[in-house]
Amino acid sequence: MLEYLLSFLILTGAVFTFIGSLGLARLKDFYTRLHGPTKATTLGVGSLLIASALLFSTRGDGVSLHEVLVTLFLFITAPVSAHLLAKAALHLELPSLAPAPQEETHDRQAGNSRGPGPHKGA
């Protein structure tokens, strides 16, 4: 029973990691590419780490929960780096499939070429 659960978690993790990177390689513009890896990999690595915690907890030498720490850390940092990458891409005005946002032109008129402009993020 445990073996099936572990196998399921490991396979899910590997498949999601693979699909995330497939999105990175396959999609057409930067903004859509951003969605693949930052998301699918968090769930992928998350379930791999849960599998690892389960495996080491059931081997007999006590509960092993420190994998939770890596999961927690990834879940906190992944959105921050995704947000920063999206902000950097908007700042560099990378071409996108979606129509560009309105505020961008507004910002440019405000004379924001480089340096600390009105981009104050969270």
Partner: peptide, 25 residues
């Protein structure tokens, strides 16, 4: 912003300088 980034399909891209709206892709 972090929650929006964490749930797949959406990325929060920029917070307006006056903090009135959040640009989401």
């Amino acid at each position: 912003a972090n929650t929006i980034c964490l749930t797949p399909g959406t990325v929060s891209a920029r917070l307006a300088p006056d903090r009135r709206c959040l640009l989401v892709h």
